[in-house]
Computed example of a mutant assay.
Amino acid sequence: MPEVLAEGHVRGPATPPIVEAVQDELVRLWDNALVIGPEDRLPFELAVVEVVTNAVRHAKPPGGEVQLDLEVEVQPDLLLARLFELGAQPVNIPEGAGEMPDPEAEAGRGLALARQLLTTITCERRDGANLWTLTRRSVPHDPGT
């Protein structure tokens, strides 16, 4: 079984305040996982925040409410996040969503950016919810350096 350095959890409505709650939880995690360097922490955090922000903007069905449930696990060589969009409409990822849009485009960079920053990103429909799984392989470093 892999060594778990830190675990985090955030749950709440898919509204803008949850983005800040996720950022706060990630900061708390890094305090408990000092062997994860900024070269892995920062890209992982940015990708998680992008996916959560997309959920806030796009997951709500007409007339419905969505709850987000984020679980994060930090291992010495792996950063893992699972985001459940409870009550969300099924994800419809447009063709080309993983590619950077034209420089003049005003939107469409979140998923493309997350894909560039992560080792893997998947989304599947499970029990009436969307489940995003995000991973980034990390290289432990000496926190004293």
Rank of each mutant, 00 (worst) to 15 (best):
L34Q: 15
A59T: 02
T133M: 12
G128H: 06
A105P: 02
E39Y: 05
T119V: 07
S138W: 03
V27P: 05
V27L: 10
P17E: 10
G64W: 03
L46I: 13
A21M: 11
R126A: 09
I121S: 00
W30T: 13
L113W: 02
T15Y: 11
G144K: 11
E20S: 00
A107R: 10
L26V: 10
L26A: 05
V139I: 12
A47T: 10
A59S: 10
G108I: 01
V72S: 09
P140M: 07
P13G: 13
A112Q: 04
G64Q: 05
I121F: 01
I93P: 01
M100G: 02
C123Q: 06
E73I: 15
E73R: 15
E106T: 06
G96E: 07
E124Y: 00
Q23A: 11
H58E: 05
A6S: 14
P140F: 07
P101Y: 00
L42K: 13
L111I: 07
Q23W: 04
L117C: 11
L80Q: 14
N130I: 06
R41T: 12
Q116P: 04
P94N: 05
Q67A: 12
G64L: 00
N32I: 13
P43H: 09
G63S: 10
I36V: 15
T145Y: 00
K60R: 12
A33L: 12
A47M: 15
P17F: 03
P16L: 05
V35C: 14
L111W: 02
R28L: 13
R28E: 08
P101D: 02
A33C: 14
G8E: 04
P2F: 12
D102V: 06
N130W: 05
I18L: 11
V74Q: 04
D127F: 03
P103D: 06
Q116N: 09
Q116M: 08
G110E: 04
T135I: 09
G96K: 02
T122N: 10
D102P: 03
E65N: 13
L78N: 07
L5D: 12
A88G: 02
V49N: 12
L5A: 13
R115D: 06
A6C: 14
N54W: 00
A6G: 14
P17M: 11
A81P: 15
L70K: 08
A88H: 01
V27D: 12
E3F: 13
L86C: 07
E7R: 12
P76C: 13
P140I: 08
A105Y: 05
L68Y: 08
V66N: 02
W132N: 05
E20R: 08
L29K: 01
E99F: 02
L42R: 14
D102M: 08
P90W: 05
P61D: 03
E73N: 14
P62M: 10
A105M: 05
E7M: 13
R41P: 07
R109Y: 04
R115L: 00
F84C: 03
Q75S: 14
M100C: 01
N32V: 15
D24V: 09
E104R: 11
L34S: 15
N54E: 08
C123V: 15
Q23V: 05
G110F: 07
R82A: 10
E106Q: 00
V52P: 00
Q116R: 09
G64E: 01
D127G: 06
L5F: 14
F84G: 04
G110R: 01
A112F: 02
L70W: 03
D69I: 02
